[in-house]
Design a protein around this nucleic acid. Structure first.
Lengths: 359, 359
DNA sequence: CTTTAGCACTCATCGTTCCTGAGTGCTAAA
DNA sequence: TTTAGCACTCAGGAACGATGAGTGCTAAAG
């Protein structure tokens, strides 16, 4: 059966009050916050019901109510009102985004800082290229013992490496090699570069010195790291201001967890484009996040580059505001990185997706 | 007049005991720690003297003594015994260092992590190239509207940029341009690239489309960012385990301070090569560091690349161990980055330099 | 002049107790 | 179904005293 309208209003009031104050909320507070016309005793009865159904709980008998993960979930899915960003807020975001035009990894780190400033929660970013291939190979001869490999990848990323070798080779050999590489390695993803292919390339170029494998090695390495996702975290210190992290030990565990980019990358349960994903407390796979929430928004940059920007905070988090801000940033990012020219469909409109609503 | 031998022993005992336990140390403890043959009353008299001279202080009447900044300074300068690293420690460091061979910025960040692991204090790294110039310019023509700029810098760093332009140009023009650039821009530091030079280059190459200024712009930008120092911090969370940072507010202030790389870069009061520099509490210029200590070691990499690796911790810090470890890492780094082939002079030997010993 | 034993004194820390007040659950009447 | 009323619970803070580590000082001994 459906939950009564009044009960929903009460639940929402409890959640929002708790988000504001971080303190258990009692029946009288609910009353004044909702403006309901009943008495506090009635509210109490409803609270008992919400308690029994698992949406609220009491830290101890005779304290006010606190939302459970299930309560937050319902709130996020159904109760929360969409938060409109003010003109000045959206302006600030677009302005900041436009100020950046550096390299992708630097950009993402900066966007993370921005999310931190905007939400005052630690922010994380993940970015990854999906199918990465080499579009072009150039070899620049420096002297008899050294040359530069320049790779142009999909997404117009350029990578390079300076190679010194203990034996000498001619400029002519490099020219032949680059021709051969451009003929047979372009358009290949990392997995499709086999040792057979390398061997035949070596023969074709008449390379007796193993330059081919040096170049192919760099190529493979580059493709691997390029498709591998880069992660960054910023603003961890903000946790320390929150009442739920006054215990240094608790804060330490979480910050420590966040400082390993492996853990961050593991958060990639990439939500559909345009959506905001919310993971509440125990919905998180990682033990260390079990009493925190993660809110993430994804963006897409056209050339197969996609990414995630999110924040980590206590389950008591201002979901409407955070979701709106992240969504706007992600949307702006998609636009900025040329996700298709026009603002993405549904840009600005929130569609929350989350973990399964386990009973 | 010189301080008596016994008094020095007592001061050392107090400092070391306090470093170990973080608790005010009393006369009896000193007695057992030093193995002195006098009575506790005598020790007390000495403590009073040390107190009067400003080396020690009491948190409150009738508590034990705690070293002052002046006390630590004397300890670091004269009293502390050099800490020898064990074979396994040095082995571990060299092994870890050798495992890295990536790009300089990545390497530095990793070295920072390593310093954190080794000392369990937050670590910081700063690296900078001193005179950076371009050794060679290559332009790779992709299609009528785009090309790649490849710059080989001193220190064998390679930088590149992909340029798209709204008008078309020929491969021939690029060839001319690269010839001219190689002729007139190599060996110049950023300041010496004037607009006159750019204008004359433009004429010499017969470039009617402004490609020259695009290339020169990238060149200047690259030189500027390359010489600018990169800073990284890691392991901030470790602070939270320390008794002096149980107050989340205090921890927050410091971690926040550390998270701005501007602040980190500001620490570059580069000590002489081979030395370890210690800044104790109020010796730090930054307000936020006033009751912490910073220990730094410098390294030099041959091609004008130099850097700093250090840790931040409470004034109560195991200076001998930290100094030894950092010194060893820095030495290994100098060696690894080819600071000159052989281990640097004084490698392994500590020479502490610090702030002035104000009275 | 230095060292030492003795002693009174200080003060943070810890456990106990008590009080207060917010908030509850329940009951009985509307 | 709602509400008024009431007894009950319990965290948090204040007040209190006991404990004990550690001091400074004094006066005698080396």
């Amino acid at each position: 059966m459906e939950m009564s309208q009044r009960r929903r209003r009460i639940l929402r009031a409890v959640v929002e009050e708790y988000i504001d104050t971080a303190e258990p909320v009692g029946s009288r507070t609910v009353l004044s916050r909702t403006g309901l016309t009943c008495s506090s005793a009635t509210v109490r009865n409803e609270l008992v019901a919400l308690d029994r159904e698992g949406y609220l709980e009491q830290p101890h008998t005779s304290a006010g109510r606190v939302p459970t993960a299930k309560g937050y979930r319902l709130y996020v899915n159904e109760l929360m009102r969409e938060r409109e960003l003010s003109q000045s807020e959206t302006d600030e975001i677009t302005r900041k985004l436009q100020a950046h035009s550096g390299r992708a990894d630097r950009l993402m780190a900066d966007v993370g800082k921005m999310a931190t400033e905007l939400t005052s929660y630690p922010a994380l970013t993940i970015s990854a290229m999906s199918p990465v291939t080499v579009k072009r190979v150039d070899l620049i001869w420096l002297d008899a013992n050294s040359f530069i490999i320049v790779l142009l990848l999909t997404g117009d990323t350029v990578k390079n490496k300076l190679v010194h070798l203990p034996f000498s080779f001619t400029e002519e050999l490099l020219r032949r090699l680059s021709a051969v590489f451009n003929a047979s390695f372009t358009g290949l993803t990392e997995e499709r570069i086999t040792s057979d292919l390398i061997a035949s390339t070596e023969r074709a170029a008449g390379d007796a010195m193993g330059l081919t494998s040096v170049i192919a090695g760099f190529l493979i390495e580059t493709l691997m790291t390029a498709k591998g996702s880069g992660a960054s975290v910023s603003g961890e210190a903000n946790l320390l201001k929150l009442p739920e992290f006054q215990d240094p030990d608790k804060a330490h565990r979480l910050i420590n967890y966040l400082s390993d980019s492996q853990n961050i990358s593991a958060l990639t349960g990439t939500p559909d484009f345009g959506d905001v994903k919310v993971l509440i407390g125990p919905e998180n796979a990682a033990l260390e996040l079990r009493d925190s929430s993660v809110v993430m928004a994804s963006f897409e940059a056209g050339d197969g580059m996609r990414g995630l920007i999110g924040v980590v905070g206590p389950t008591r988090m201002d979901y409407p505001a955070v979701a709106a801000k992240l969504s706007y940033i992600a949307g702006g990012l998609s636009r900025l990185l040329g996700g298709g020219g026009s603002p993405p469909a549904g840009f600005g409109k929130l569609m929350i997706k989350g973990g399964d609503n386990d009973a």
